[in-house]
């Protein structure tokens, strides 16, 4: 089983997000990029499949501050091949139509049986990557998955619906899958193992094809919503805030 995992880097939402002088993009001066959380689940699911049924895992990402760390961490966890696309950077927040085209160009050479990607990223403005990639590759797609099993060339997936309902589906390979959650939480990694991977693993740089960027909307403006206009803010020392919350609960007849 030849499994490819696509990883996107996205702005860390814990940091303050600022809009740049053009008013149409995030200010990248202090922007910290981290791995898209569900892509970490996609990687974990790929490693679980490899451990169960054999095969190899290729991780593909593009440029951006932190891309190397993400790739070395993937190697330390058990990935076999690391590919970084040059000439396209997550700092420029490329659209998924663009990313699907450049990723597809690399994947065609790899001939994967399965392509796993996180079902979405918080900065998707033109749909999620998986379906667009699947169409580029001419493969079927199914997303919102929280389980993947492969046996004798048959792939069974668990698709999540609202309210906790799920559907088991069978998908013909090769296929692209959008992972919501891996069957096990992403494995913990000691820093020492990443350091070790930095010495032993090799990142293969590939030049991205000059991408066709059509398909995404043109941004007119970007703005932050007025947060907390409706909320009454409780301030003061912790015991004062706690006392006020107890008052509110009492007013609701709950205490």
């Amino acid at each position: 089983m030849n499994i490819a995992v696509l990883i996107k880097l996205v702005p860390d939402l814990v940091e303050e997000l600022e809009i740049d002088a053009t008013g149409t993009a995030l200010d990248t001066t202090w922007l910290r990029l981290i791995i898209n959380e569900v892509d970490e689940h996609a990687l974990e699911q790929a490693l679980l499949l490899k451990e169960r049924g054999g095969g190899d895992v290729t991780v593909v990402t593009a440029e951006g501050d932190g891309a190397e760390d993400v790739l070395y961490a993937a190697a330390a966890k058990g990935s076999d091949r690391l590919i970084r696309l040059r000439g396209i950077s997550f700092e420029d927040a490329p659209g998924n139509h663009t990313l699907a085209r450049v990723f597809a160009a690399v994947l065609r050479d790899l001939e994967p049986d399965l392509v796993l990607t996180g079902v979405q990223a918080h900065n998707d403005l033109d749909g999620s990557l998986g379906p667009l990639l699947a169409e580029e590759m001419g493969m079927p797609y199914v997303g919102y998955l929280s389980g993947v099993q492969t046996e004798d060339g048959v792939c069974r997936v668990m698709k999540e619906y609202p309210g906790g309902l799920a559907a088991e589906m069978e998908i013909a390979l090769p296929a692209v899958l959008g992972i919501q959650a891996s069957e096990e939480p992403p494995r913990y990694l000691a820093i020492s193992r990443i350091r070790q991977a930095m010495k032993t693993a090799t990142i293969v740089d590939r030049e991205a094809e000059q991408p066709d960027t059509t398909g995404a909307p043109g941004v007119i403006s970007m703005f932050t919503p007025e947060v907390g206009e409706a909320a009454t803010m409780l301030t003061g020392a912790d015991d004062e805030v706690a006392a006020r919350i107890v008052e509110i609960l009492s007013e609701q007849g709950l205490l």
Binding site: E16, L17, T224, P225, V227, G228, E229, A230, A231, T232, M233, L234, T235, D238, D239, V241, A242, A243, R244, I245, V246, I248, L249, S250, L255
Partner: peptide, 30 residues
Amino acid sequence: AAPIFDVAHYGTEADLLDLLPELIDKVKAA
């Protein structure tokens, strides 16, 4: 800047790990 304050009626920027013990005590007392 957490969007939860958008849907909240009451909000506080207190650290929940500091606030929780206080709140538990006061709720139990009440």
